[in-house]
Amino acid sequence: MDSDCYQACLDGDEYEYYGGFYDVSPIVLEVPYDDYGHLVVDSHPRRIKVSYTEVFD
């Protein structure tokens, strides 16, 4: 999500995001725009380990 949506998420306001629920691993996510973004992982109530790799074309 972009910075504005991330701040709205933190504030408890409405926001837009890309992605969804995944119950398999690994997953591949593509950023839908050319800019910095925030990756938010909500694993509640399970504890999970997250790692990522940046790939540039």
Rank of each mutant, 00 (worst) to 15 (best):
V31I: 14
V41Y: 07
D35Y: 11
R46E: 13
S25G: 00
S3I: 01
D13Q: 14
V55T: 10
P32H: 06
D42T: 05
G19Q: 08
Y36L: 03
C9R: 15
P26G: 05
P45M: 04
E16M: 05
V40Y: 09
L10Q: 15
E16F: 11
P32T: 04
D11G: 01
S43Q: 04
G20Y: 08
A8F: 06
Y33F: 15
Y33S: 10
G20D: 11
D13P: 00
L10E: 15
Y6N: 11
Y52H: 11
D57N: 09
F56T: 06
D34Y: 12
D11M: 12
V31T: 11
E14M: 06
C9Y: 14
M1P: 08
D23S: 13
Y33M: 09
S3A: 14
D13Y: 10
T53E: 14
L10A: 10
D42M: 06
H44R: 11
D23W: 07
E54F: 10
L39D: 09
Y15R: 06
Y52K: 07
I27H: 04
Y17A: 12
D35K: 13
S3V: 01
V24P: 00
D57C: 01
V55M: 11
L10S: 05
V24T: 15
A8C: 03
F21V: 12
I27R: 08
D35E: 15
V41M: 08
Y52I: 00
I27D: 08
P32L: 05
G12K: 05
G12M: 09
D4H: 04
D23C: 05
F56L: 09
I48Q: 09
R46T: 07
H38V: 06
P26K: 01
V55D: 07
L39N: 06
I27G: 07
S43L: 00
G19T: 03
P32Q: 04
Y18I: 02
G37W: 10
D23I: 01
V40G: 02
C9W: 15
Q7S: 12
P45V: 01
E16L: 10
Y22H: 14
S3H: 08
Y22V: 04
R46H: 13
A8T: 04
G20E: 07
Y33V: 08
V24K: 13
A8L: 09
D34M: 04
V24A: 10
P45S: 06
R46K: 11
D13N: 15
V31M: 12
Y22W: 12
Y52A: 09
E54V: 02
C9N: 13
E14K: 11
L10D: 00
R46S: 11
P26N: 11
L39W: 03
C9P: 00
I27K: 05
A8G: 00
V55Q: 12
T53R: 15
G37M: 10
V31S: 06
K49R: 11
H38Q: 02
L29W: 02
D42I: 07
H44C: 09
C9A: 12
A8I: 01
Y36W: 12
D57Y: 06
L39R: 05
Y52N: 02
C5A: 15
L39K: 04
Y36N: 14
T53I: 10
M1K: 03
V55S: 11
F21H: 13
H44V: 07
G37D: 05
V28K: 12
D57G: 04
I27Q: 15
Y33T: 04
Y36C: 01
F56P: 02
V28A: 08
V55K: 10
D4P: 00
Y22N: 03
S25N: 10
